[in-house]
Every structure is written in C-alpha cells, then in structure tokens.
Design a protein around this nucleic acid. Structure first.
Lengths: 231, 231
DNA sequence: CATTTACTAAACGATATCGTACAGTAATAA
DNA sequence: TTATTACTGTACGATATCGTTTAGTAAATG
C-alpha cells in the first residue's frame, strides 16, 4: 500500500517518519495537480477525468490514485490550490494611501481585474457545480475570498470614518455596497457566460463611479461634495 | 418517425396541419418537463438523466426522446421553462409610485426575495455548469434577467431624474450600482453554497440602505439630504 | 375497416469512466 | 544485498448512461 496519508492536502504524501522505501516524487504530485487544473480551466468539470489527467501529466493512472485517493480528492485539491492562489492575489491588493478616493480606486481596479479573470470565473463555476455535493469547499472559498475582502475593505472604511473622512456608518455593509457597485451585474453575466469580459477601461469607469457614489453618500454630515466628474 | 418538430420549444409537438394519426399528449410533455425540473432542482445536473426523468414522469424513455430529441434538448427545455417563469416573476415586480424611495424599496425587496430563492440559485448554477457548452442559454437568461431588470430600474431612475428628484446621471450605471448594493456578496455566497439564505429582515435592511445610499449620492445638486435612519 | 401516428416495455450496442489488480521496474534505507 | 516503497503499463470488472431497436398496444383520421 502506498503512503495513502496525503489525502487532499497539498503536501506530497508526508512520510510518517524517515521513509523506508523509495520516496514519493513531489514533482509528480505537482504535475498531476497542474494538469488537472489546466484540464479543468480549459474545459469543464466533465473534462476533468482521471485518465486525461494521467495522460496530460505524464504519470500512471495508479499514481494519480495513490496521490489523491479519488477523483473527488483530486477535484478538492484543485479547488484548494486555486483558493490559495486567490488568497495570495487578494493579499497583494494595493494598500496605497495617497488619499482615500485614490486608494479605493486602485484597490477596486485590482480587485475587479481579478474577479473578472478567467481563473476566478472558472473557480466560481466549479464551486457552483459542486455546491450540492461539497458544501464546505464553497464555504471555504467564500470565507477566504468574498468575506475576507469585504472585511479588509470595511476596515479601511472604518479607519476613514474614525479620521473623520466619512460619517459614522456600518462599515461592513458599506464595504459590501461598494463591492456590489463595482461588480454590478457583470459577475453574474460572466458566470453564466451571458456577457463578454469588460475591458480595463470599462472596469475603471465602474470602479471610479462606485467609489464616488459611496464617498458622496457617506461624506461627513453637512458636507455636500461637488465632484468634477460631469459627463 | 415521431413529429420530431417539437425541438426544444415549450410547445408540445406542433402538428403540421391536421394530424393524421394519434395526437401527441401535451400532458406527457408537461409531465416530463416537470419531472426533469424537479429532478434537477432536488439534485444537480448529474441527477438529471433520461431514465430517471422517464421513471419520475411515468413515461416511456422513448417518449422522452421523441419529445425532446436529446438530453441536451431536455436540459435546454428546462432552462427555457425556468427562464419564462423568471421573466414572469420579474414582470410582476411592484410598480408602485408612492414616492421614489418607497417604490425602490418595494421593488428591491421583491427582487431580492426572488434572487435569493432556491429556484433562481439553481438556475444560475445550471447556467454556470453549462456555460462552456451552451453559451446562448446563458446569454438568453442574462438578457431577459439581469439586463432587463437593470434597464427597467434605469428607466425609473431616469424618470425621477427628469422630474428633478435626482440629479442628472447615467441611469443604467446607477441601476447597476443599486442592484449591486442590494446583492452585495450574498448572491456569490449563495451560488457557491458559501453562505446561508438571508431572512426577509436582513434583505429588507440591505435594500433600504442601498436605496438610501443611492438617493443621497444622486440627490439633486446642492441639496444635502438628512436622513432619519440613524442607528 | 385500414392507415397513421403516439406510446410502452424490454432489450441491446456503444461508450465512458471509475477504481483495482497484476507483474514488473526504480529508488531508497537498513 | 535485501526489504520496502513508489511508479509504470496494461488489463480487468463494475457501472452508468446514452441513444436505438423491436414488437406490440392505443388513439386518432379517412
């Protein structure tokens, strides 16, 4: 029997102590995962089958099973890999601070670029497909993705409010509102394949307008901000 | 050969003129469609297979084929059926006019109730799964759903702007912003199974806050609206 | 009546895919 | 060297599901 302790973890079959026999090959583990990911992203979850993965990764079918136990396990691993890349991308969002408006715009542009990327859309589609069988995957990605982003954004809004740049408000709600305005109905359309991917220009416009609406609505009491974004 | 002209339409096999032989049974057509719909909504697209549909609708397998030609055809028919129910629901949205704010809130509540319904979520999941194979389905639902709703909402905002209740603005964009604020990250969460369905109370709060943000941001120039929704 | 079309029940052929078994080779530790 | 574990290639068994065929029954028209 192979190690069989790898399970769905990203770690290549942790040897229990000081591995007695031939050590498992991490390169193969990675190759399988990469092939599975590629196969899924260039097709649907239907095209992600063990044989194709084995062929594409130049590995025996048995090796796939010994590394990931199961097709479900492989799918899980792909989702988790994608999730880790997602969180990394979200952690790299700009944290610039030359003025609240510009900071929000930069963040919004980067975020929307990510949310409309093929990778993210594919991940969401996968989760939508798996939602019935593996709820926990969706929960995980939602927590680390949408919720985390909202909370990070909320923290900035709360700071701004504390500085007096915004009136007192429910920051988490405001953050969701901003995220919602940025997305509009785009993400829905992308997910169902109903609309093409918007270009950077279009995204920027949406992001800026969303920020302006938020700033005007939550401007400190008694201040009527006039903006110069006419037309 | 059976009529074979039904295709994916919702109409039960239009007889070309004055049908010579035994007429097709509309009840069976409906029963098949209903069973298919039920099967999909209580499972995933995986549980929607011809044999199960035939069994559940008390109809021969061959009949299913003669009515819908193909599994793809059946799936198409289910999506189109669901789409027609969706558009009906969207057409029934309240068009009340006792004040802009209340009208928007009523509309938002009804809409969000629909968007968070099991049926709508299931439809979106289906489209997300099918997005690679049958783009046109997604396009169709997106047009009749999200875009139509946005445009209807935009029309109301444009009217309000013409009346002087709102400042001049890009109504379509504003409509998307409002839709986005209402949804926040909820729809994303629901789709991936990441978050539970919000209750009516929660939805109402989101809708109201979204409307207030929009109204304040797009208030006629020079007017600083003070709201009484403190806390 | 005969003809034509819709429908049923059961069986069949064709695949696709899963997961496992087997026999052999490769790499590492004792 | 020997024991042990990883890996390969091929083959196999078990299903599941599609879509079709066949033979017969049901319901309509002329």
């Amino acid at each position: 029997m192979p190690t069989s302790e790898a399970g769905a973890s990203g770690v290549p079959a942790t040897p229990r102590n000081a591995a007695r026999g031939r050590p498992p090959d991490p390169a193969k583990h990675a190759a399988i995962l990469a092939a599975a990911r590629r196969l899924f992203f260039s097709g649907s979850i239907q095209t992600l089958n063990i044989e194709a993965v084995a062929r594409a990764s130049g590995v025996s079918k048995v090796t796939v099973y010994s590394h990931f136990g199961d097709l479900q396990g492989l799918i899980r691993a792909v989702v988790l890999l994608q999730r880790s890349e997602m969180t990394a991308a979200l952690d790299d969002l700009p944290a610039d601070q030359r003025g609240l408006r510009q900071a929000l715009i930069d963040l919004g542009c980067a975020l929307m670029g990510f949310l409309t990327s093929d990778d993210y859309v594919a991940l969401q589609r996968m989760l939508a497909t798996l939602a019935r069988q593996e709820t926990w995957l969706g929960t995980l990605v939602y927590r680390d993705g949408a919720e985390a982003t909202r909370d990070r954004l909320a923290a900035r809004l709360a700071e701004a409010s504390a500085r007096g740049d915004l009136r007192a408000h429910d920051s988490r709600l405001a953050a969701e509102q901003l995220l919602g305005m940025w997305q509009g109905i785009q993400t829905t359309g992308l997910l169902s394949g109903g609309c093409p991917r918007p270009d950077a220009e279009e995204l920027r416009r949406r992001v800026e307008c969303g920020v302006d609406v938020l700033l005007r609505a939550y401007a400190p009491e008694g201040i009527d901000r006039k903006t110069d974004r006419s037309g």
